[in-house]
Protein backbone atom coordinates (compact mmCIF):
# COMPACT_ATOMS: atom_id res chain seq x y z
CA UNK A 1 0.00 0.00 0.00
CA UNK A 2 2.70 2.47 1.01
CA UNK A 3 4.69 1.72 -2.12
CA UNK A 4 1.73 2.27 -4.42
CA UNK A 5 0.85 5.53 -2.75
CA UNK A 6 4.43 6.76 -2.92
CA UNK A 7 4.57 5.85 -6.61
CA UNK A 8 1.26 7.59 -7.26
CA UNK A 9 2.72 10.70 -5.61
CA UNK A 10 5.81 10.62 -7.82
CA UNK A 11 3.76 10.13 -10.98
CA UNK A 12 1.50 12.94 -9.94
CA UNK A 13 4.42 15.34 -9.49
CA UNK A 14 5.97 14.34 -12.82
CA UNK A 15 2.69 14.86 -14.64
CA UNK A 16 1.98 18.11 -12.85
CA UNK A 17 5.29 19.52 -14.07
CA UNK A 18 4.79 18.06 -17.53
CA UNK A 19 1.30 19.54 -17.79
CA UNK A 20 2.77 22.95 -17.01
CA UNK A 21 5.49 22.48 -19.60
CA UNK A 22 2.85 21.80 -22.24
CA UNK A 23 1.63 25.35 -21.92
CA UNK A 24 4.75 27.27 -22.93
CA UNK A 25 7.87 25.13 -23.25
CA UNK A 26 9.54 24.25 -26.57
CA UNK A 27 8.46 21.03 -28.18
CA UNK A 28 11.85 19.37 -27.72
CA UNK A 29 11.68 20.00 -24.01
CA UNK A 30 8.21 18.54 -23.81
CA UNK A 31 9.36 15.50 -25.71
CA UNK A 32 12.28 15.13 -23.28
CA UNK A 33 9.82 15.25 -20.37
CA UNK A 34 7.79 12.36 -21.77
CA UNK A 35 10.92 10.35 -22.49
CA UNK A 36 12.16 10.92 -18.94
CA UNK A 37 8.92 9.68 -17.43
CA UNK A 38 8.68 6.58 -19.58
CA UNK A 39 12.34 5.68 -19.16
CA UNK A 40 12.13 6.13 -15.41
CA UNK A 41 9.22 3.72 -15.14
CA UNK A 42 10.82 1.39 -17.67
CA UNK A 43 7.91 1.35 -20.07
CA UNK A 44 7.18 2.33 -23.63
CA UNK A 45 4.12 4.35 -24.44
CA UNK A 46 1.40 2.85 -26.54
CA UNK A 47 2.39 3.52 -30.14
CA UNK A 48 5.81 4.99 -29.21
CA UNK A 49 6.74 8.60 -28.60
CA UNK A 50 6.11 10.82 -31.57
CA UNK A 51 9.05 13.04 -32.37
CA UNK A 52 8.61 16.76 -32.19
CA UNK A 53 6.89 17.61 -35.45
CA UNK A 54 6.36 20.95 -37.09
CA UNK A 55 2.73 21.04 -36.14
CA UNK A 56 1.91 21.85 -32.56
CA UNK A 57 -1.48 20.17 -32.86
CA UNK A 58 0.15 16.85 -33.59
CA UNK A 59 2.22 17.07 -30.44
CA UNK A 60 -0.81 18.08 -28.43
CA UNK A 61 -2.67 14.95 -29.53
CA UNK A 62 0.27 12.88 -28.36
CA UNK A 63 0.39 14.68 -25.07
CA UNK A 64 -3.28 13.91 -24.55
CA UNK A 65 -2.82 10.19 -25.11
CA UNK A 66 0.31 10.00 -22.98
CA UNK A 67 -1.28 11.94 -20.14
CA UNK A 68 -4.29 9.66 -20.27
CA UNK A 69 -2.15 6.53 -20.27
CA UNK A 70 -0.14 7.69 -17.29
CA UNK A 71 -3.10 8.97 -15.31
CA UNK A 72 -6.29 7.06 -15.98
CA UNK A 73 -5.57 3.92 -18.00
CA UNK A 74 -6.08 0.92 -15.75
CA UNK A 75 -4.20 -1.40 -18.09
CA UNK A 76 -1.05 0.57 -17.33
CA UNK A 77 0.07 -0.66 -13.90
CA UNK A 78 2.07 2.54 -13.36
CA UNK A 79 -0.81 4.93 -14.00
CA UNK A 80 -1.93 6.99 -11.05
CA UNK A 81 -5.36 5.38 -11.05
CA UNK A 82 -3.81 1.89 -11.09
CA UNK A 83 -1.51 2.80 -8.21
CA UNK A 84 -4.40 4.17 -6.16
CA UNK A 85 -6.54 1.17 -7.00
CA UNK A 86 -3.86 -1.31 -6.00
CA UNK A 87 -3.01 0.67 -2.89
CA UNK A 88 -6.68 0.58 -1.98
CA UNK A 89 -6.89 -3.17 -2.57
CA UNK A 90 -3.86 -3.66 -0.33
CA UNK A 91 -5.41 -1.43 2.30
CA UNK A 92 -8.64 -3.41 2.06
CA UNK A 93 -6.72 -6.60 2.80
CA UNK A 94 -5.11 -5.15 5.88
CA UNK A 95 -7.94 -2.94 7.06
CA UNK A 96 -7.43 -4.15 10.61
CA UNK A 97 -3.85 -2.78 10.50
CA UNK A 98 -4.53 0.65 9.00
CA UNK A 99 -6.39 3.39 10.78
CA UNK A 100 -9.93 4.27 9.83
CA UNK A 101 -8.76 7.74 8.79
CA UNK A 102 -6.16 6.27 6.43
CA UNK A 103 -8.77 4.11 4.77
CA UNK A 104 -11.13 7.05 4.41
CA UNK A 105 -8.42 9.31 2.95
CA UNK A 106 -7.37 6.69 0.43
CA UNK A 107 -10.82 5.45 -0.47
CA UNK A 108 -12.40 8.86 -0.95
CA UNK A 109 -9.49 10.01 -3.12
CA UNK A 110 -9.81 6.89 -5.24
CA UNK A 111 -13.58 7.25 -5.56
CA UNK A 112 -13.16 10.93 -6.44
CA UNK A 113 -10.91 10.30 -9.42
CA UNK A 114 -12.28 6.91 -10.46
CA UNK A 115 -14.98 8.36 -12.65
CA UNK A 116 -13.07 11.39 -13.94
CA UNK A 117 -12.04 11.26 -17.57
CA UNK A 118 -9.22 13.20 -19.14
CA UNK A 119 -11.73 15.10 -21.28
CA UNK A 120 -13.16 16.50 -18.06
CA UNK A 121 -9.90 18.23 -17.16
CA UNK A 122 -7.82 18.55 -20.30
CA UNK A 123 -9.02 21.83 -21.71
CA UNK A 124 -9.51 23.58 -18.43
CA UNK A 125 -7.07 22.72 -15.71
CA UNK A 126 -4.95 19.58 -15.78
CA UNK A 127 -2.48 21.45 -13.55
CA UNK A 128 -5.07 22.04 -10.83
CA UNK A 129 -6.22 18.45 -11.14
CA UNK A 130 -2.73 17.14 -10.41
CA UNK A 131 -2.19 19.66 -7.63
CA UNK A 132 -5.43 18.59 -6.00
CA UNK A 133 -4.63 14.92 -6.44
CA UNK A 134 -1.20 15.41 -4.97
CA UNK A 135 -2.76 17.14 -1.99
CA UNK A 136 -5.03 14.09 -1.57
CA UNK A 137 -2.07 11.72 -1.66
CA UNK A 138 -0.11 13.92 0.75
CA UNK A 139 -3.17 13.96 3.00
CA UNK A 140 -3.12 10.18 3.09
CA UNK A 141 0.55 10.16 4.09
CA UNK A 142 -0.05 12.84 6.71
CA UNK A 143 -3.06 11.03 8.12
CA UNK A 144 -1.01 7.83 8.30
CA UNK A 145 1.71 9.61 10.25
CA UNK A 146 -0.84 11.16 12.56
CA UNK A 147 -3.05 8.17 13.21
CA UNK A 148 -1.35 4.85 12.56
CA UNK A 149 -0.56 2.70 15.57
CA UNK A 150 3.21 2.48 16.02
CA UNK A 151 3.50 -1.28 15.90
CA UNK A 152 5.24 -3.50 13.42
CA UNK A 153 2.68 -2.58 10.76
CA UNK A 154 3.80 1.04 10.95
CA UNK A 155 7.44 0.10 10.42
CA UNK A 156 6.55 -2.07 7.43
CA UNK A 157 4.50 0.83 6.07
CA UNK A 158 7.48 3.16 6.39
CA UNK A 159 9.97 0.65 4.96
CA UNK A 160 7.72 0.24 1.91
CA UNK A 161 7.42 3.98 1.51
CA UNK A 162 11.19 4.56 1.70
CA UNK A 163 12.18 1.64 -0.51
CA UNK A 164 9.80 2.92 -3.17
CA UNK A 165 11.23 6.39 -2.74
CA UNK A 166 14.78 5.11 -3.17
CA UNK A 167 13.87 3.12 -6.27
CA UNK A 168 11.81 5.79 -7.97
CA UNK A 169 14.25 8.60 -7.21
CA UNK A 170 17.17 6.51 -8.29
CA UNK A 171 15.44 5.54 -11.54
CA UNK A 172 14.71 9.15 -12.25
CA UNK A 173 18.29 10.30 -11.54
CA UNK A 174 19.69 7.44 -13.56
CA UNK A 175 17.39 8.34 -16.44
CA UNK A 176 18.48 11.96 -16.27
CA UNK A 177 22.19 11.03 -16.40
CA UNK A 178 21.67 8.50 -19.20
CA UNK A 179 19.65 10.91 -21.30
CA UNK A 180 22.38 13.47 -20.84
CA UNK A 181 24.94 10.99 -22.10
CA UNK A 182 22.65 10.15 -24.99
CA UNK A 183 21.57 13.64 -26.02
CA UNK A 184 24.50 15.76 -24.84
CA UNK A 185 24.06 18.65 -22.46
CA UNK A 186 20.47 18.96 -21.32
CA UNK A 187 18.57 22.19 -21.12
CA UNK A 188 18.69 23.98 -17.80
CA UNK A 189 14.92 23.63 -17.56
CA UNK A 190 15.18 19.85 -17.39
CA UNK A 191 17.45 20.09 -14.33
CA UNK A 192 15.24 22.72 -12.78
CA UNK A 193 12.19 20.50 -13.23
CA UNK A 194 14.12 17.62 -11.70
CA UNK A 195 14.75 19.74 -8.64
CA UNK A 196 11.06 20.59 -8.46
CA UNK A 197 10.12 16.91 -8.58
CA UNK A 198 12.25 16.43 -5.46
CA UNK A 199 10.89 19.60 -3.81
CA UNK A 200 14.48 20.82 -3.87
CA UNK A 201 14.45 23.86 -6.16
CA UNK A 202 14.58 26.44 -3.36
CA UNK A 203 17.15 24.42 -1.43
CA UNK A 204 19.43 24.34 -4.47
CA UNK A 205 19.21 28.09 -4.91
CA UNK A 206 20.01 28.66 -1.26
CA UNK A 207 22.84 26.12 -1.16
CA UNK A 208 24.49 27.00 -4.48
CA UNK A 209 23.05 29.68 -6.72
CA UNK A 210 20.30 30.21 -9.20
CA UNK A 211 22.72 29.05 -11.91
CA UNK A 212 22.14 25.39 -12.64
CA UNK A 213 25.17 23.10 -12.61
CA UNK A 214 24.16 19.51 -13.30
CA UNK A 215 26.87 17.98 -11.09
CA UNK A 216 25.74 20.05 -8.14
CA UNK A 217 22.11 19.18 -8.75
CA UNK A 218 23.00 15.49 -8.67
CA UNK A 219 25.09 15.89 -5.53
CA UNK A 220 22.28 17.68 -3.78
CA UNK A 221 19.63 15.12 -4.75
CA UNK A 222 21.82 12.16 -3.92
CA UNK A 223 23.67 13.06 -0.76
CA UNK A 224 22.16 16.10 0.95
CA UNK A 225 20.27 14.65 3.91
CA UNK A 226 18.48 17.96 4.43
CA UNK A 227 16.49 17.29 1.27
CA UNK A 228 13.60 15.14 2.55
CA UNK A 229 13.59 12.98 -0.55
CA UNK A 230 17.30 12.79 -1.28
CA UNK A 231 18.59 9.32 -1.96
CA UNK A 232 20.85 9.18 1.07
CA UNK A 233 18.15 10.35 3.44
CA UNK A 234 15.70 7.80 2.02
CA UNK A 235 18.25 5.02 2.39
CA UNK A 236 19.05 6.08 5.97
CA UNK A 237 15.33 6.11 6.82
CA UNK A 238 14.96 2.65 5.33
CA UNK A 239 17.83 1.39 7.49
CA UNK A 240 16.32 3.01 10.55
CA UNK A 241 12.92 1.41 9.98
CA UNK A 242 14.50 -1.98 9.33
CA UNK A 243 16.26 -1.80 12.67
CA UNK A 244 12.87 -1.21 14.33
CA UNK A 245 11.55 -4.50 12.97
CA UNK A 246 12.12 -7.66 14.93
CA UNK A 247 14.42 -10.39 13.75
CA UNK A 248 11.58 -12.29 12.12
CA UNK A 249 11.62 -16.07 11.97
CA UNK A 250 15.33 -16.20 11.17
CA UNK A 251 17.87 -13.83 12.73
CA UNK A 252 20.51 -14.69 10.13
CA UNK A 253 18.24 -13.61 7.26
CA UNK A 254 17.19 -10.39 8.91
CA UNK A 255 20.85 -9.67 9.71
CA UNK A 256 21.71 -10.08 6.03
CA UNK A 257 18.89 -7.71 5.16
CA UNK A 258 20.24 -5.01 7.46
CA UNK A 259 23.76 -5.45 6.14
CA UNK A 260 22.46 -4.96 2.60
CA UNK A 261 20.83 -1.71 3.65
CA UNK A 262 24.14 -0.71 5.27
CA UNK A 263 26.04 -1.38 2.06
CA UNK A 264 23.57 0.77 0.18
CA UNK A 265 24.14 3.66 2.58
CA UNK A 266 27.92 3.23 2.40
CA UNK A 267 27.82 3.32 -1.39
CA UNK A 268 26.15 6.71 -1.35
CA UNK A 269 28.03 8.10 1.61
CA UNK A 270 31.57 6.99 0.77
CA UNK A 271 31.68 5.95 -2.90
CA UNK A 272 29.58 8.60 -4.56
CA UNK A 273 31.81 11.62 -3.76
CA UNK A 274 34.94 9.99 -5.19
CA UNK A 275 33.65 8.26 -8.26
CA UNK A 276 33.40 9.65 -11.77
CA UNK A 277 31.17 6.88 -13.11
CA UNK A 278 28.10 8.18 -11.42
CA UNK A 279 25.74 6.36 -13.73
CA UNK A 280 27.32 3.11 -12.57
CA UNK A 281 26.88 4.04 -8.90
CA UNK A 282 23.23 4.85 -9.47
CA UNK A 283 22.78 1.57 -11.31
CA UNK A 284 24.26 -0.24 -8.32
CA UNK A 285 21.99 1.62 -5.93
CA UNK A 286 19.00 0.57 -8.00
CA UNK A 287 20.12 -3.07 -7.99
CA UNK A 288 20.68 -3.05 -4.23
CA UNK A 289 17.33 -1.42 -3.55
CA UNK A 290 15.55 -4.08 -5.61
CA UNK A 291 17.39 -6.78 -3.69
CA UNK A 292 16.36 -5.08 -0.50
CA UNK A 293 12.71 -5.42 -1.46
CA UNK A 294 13.09 -9.11 -2.32
CA UNK A 295 15.03 -9.90 0.86
CA UNK A 296 12.49 -8.08 2.97
CA UNK A 297 9.71 -10.16 1.51
CA UNK A 298 11.65 -13.40 1.95
CA UNK A 299 12.61 -12.52 5.52
CA UNK A 300 9.21 -11.61 6.89
CA UNK A 301 6.49 -12.89 4.54
CA UNK A 302 7.53 -15.57 2.10
CA UNK A 303 9.98 -17.35 4.35
CA UNK A 304 10.66 -21.05 4.05
CA UNK A 305 9.58 -23.06 7.06
CA UNK A 306 12.61 -24.74 8.51
CA UNK A 307 12.44 -27.40 11.15
CA UNK A 308 9.41 -28.75 12.92
CA UNK A 309 7.82 -26.37 15.42
CA UNK A 310 7.36 -27.84 18.83
CA UNK A 311 3.74 -28.44 19.63
CA UNK A 312 3.99 -26.41 22.83
CA UNK A 313 5.15 -23.30 20.95
CA UNK A 314 2.40 -20.75 21.29
Amino acid sequence: MARYMERAGFMCRLLHIQSEALVDRPIAEIEFGWRRIYTAIDRSPLGGIQGAGPEDDYTLVDAYLLTDELTFVRENPESILSCLERGRENARQIRNCVSEQMWTALNTEFLRIRDIKLTDIWLTSPGSFYAELLAGIDRFTGVATATMYRDEGWHFFRVGQFIERVQFSCSLLLTQTRLELQYGELAEASWRSLLRIFHASGAYDRTYSIEIQPELVLDLLVTDRRIPESLLRSVDRTTQELSSLGDGPNAATSGALRRLAGRLGALLRYDWPDRDDREEVLRQVLTYSRQLHDHLSETYFEYAIQGVPRSDVR
Binding site: Q93, F156, L245, G248, Y303, V308, P309, S311, V313, R314
Partner: peptide, 24 residues
Amino acid sequence: LVEGRDLIVNDGYVYMRTTSGLRR
Protein backbone atom coordinates in the same frame (compact mmCIF):
# COMPACT_ATOMS: atom_id res chain seq x y z
CA LEU B 1 -7.37 -12.46 9.12
CA VAL B 2 -5.81 -15.41 7.33
CA GLU B 3 -6.14 -17.28 4.08
CA GLY B 4 -5.51 -21.00 3.73
CA ARG B 5 -1.97 -20.42 2.52
CA ASP B 6 -1.17 -18.60 5.78
CA LEU B 7 -1.91 -21.70 7.85
CA ILE B 8 -0.05 -24.97 8.15
CA VAL B 9 -0.74 -28.09 10.15
CA ASN B 10 2.16 -29.79 11.81
CA ASP B 11 2.17 -32.59 14.33
CA GLY B 12 -1.60 -32.22 14.69
CA TYR B 13 -1.52 -28.51 15.52
CA VAL B 14 -2.41 -25.53 13.37
CA TYR B 15 0.06 -22.68 12.95
CA MET B 16 -0.14 -19.39 11.15
CA ARG B 17 2.67 -17.54 9.51
CA THR B 18 3.43 -14.25 11.19
CA THR B 19 6.25 -11.82 10.56
CA SER B 20 8.03 -13.24 13.59
CA GLY B 21 7.56 -16.89 12.64
CA LEU B 22 4.91 -19.54 13.18
CA ARG B 23 2.29 -19.10 15.88
CA ARG B 24 -0.17 -21.71 17.08
